[in-house]
Design a protein around this nucleic acid. Structure first.
Lengths: 121, 121
DNA sequence: AAACCTAGTATCCAAAAAGAAACCTTAAGC
DNA sequence: GCTTAAGGTTTCTTTTTGGATACTAGGTTT
């Protein structure tokens, strides 16, 4: 019972973590449908391998849809599924909390920065 | 601008990820104040090293408070800070989404299980 | 005087995740 | 018949995480 709540939280987190998923989701949420190469261009620091694996995981979770055009050279389009759209409130909640928390950390540790500023003068 | 929203999401996630943080938070949220050894007993699979490092990170983020009693043998108590309590709605949102998502995955991939069931007969 | 207690550190090692770079496919264009 | 294009996969290396074990401090108990 103790661990059931946790496993749900952990399940939810699995989908978000992996360093690149938030940015990938962000791209797809804001740009709608995107080709593989468009995602690569939008996220220059991610390798093909990583991009592929993260997209596959999101696809497995029914968050992202992968549409293959049978043509050469290949064309593959990625988009957020209808089910994936249901994540919007969650992402917004996380975003809101993150925003507030960055602010909070700033207030907590701003003393350090004041000292640094004073030293550089 | 594209990455600012992401960085907030990522900041929020940093606090939750690290495999053990959700369980640690769960313990502290449900049990209130706990000693180091109590946490160890409640989470037998986590090593001292991990428990220490996760608690220190949570402490840095002002989610967890660490109270040291100057006595021998040492006594240290951990608890959720007042600020940390503000995470409750977020944790509940993540938990709710996770619950729904597990259900969704079940429905999506239950075909496999039906086949397995048929085979074992 | 030896052993025990708590809350850790320190050191070393294994495993997992991530990155870099080369390779693959197949049709069209030069 | 060589190159290009898109969307990957494969292989190898590096980095990051996590775990096991031993050790510490210093007062209390045996």
């Amino acid at each position: 019972m103790a661990d059931e709540n946790c496993s749900r939280v952990e399940t939810a987190l699995e989908i978000l973590v992996g360093k690149w998923k938030p940015v990938i989701l962000y791209q797809l949420f804001t740009n709608g449908t995107m080709r593989f190469s468009e995602l690569q261009r939008a996220l220059p620091d991610i390798t093909k391998k990583m991009l592929t694996s993260q997209l596959r995981e999101l696809e497995y979770h029914d968050i992202v849809h992968r549409k293959i055009y049978m043509q050469i050279p290949p064309k593959v389009e990625y988009s957020i599924t209808e089910y994936g759209m249901k994540m919007t409130p969650l992402l917004e909640a996380i975003n809101a909390w993150g925003t507030m928390h960055i602010q909070h950390l700033n207030e907590l540790y701003s003393e350090d920065r004041k000292l640094e500023d004073a030293e550089t003068k």
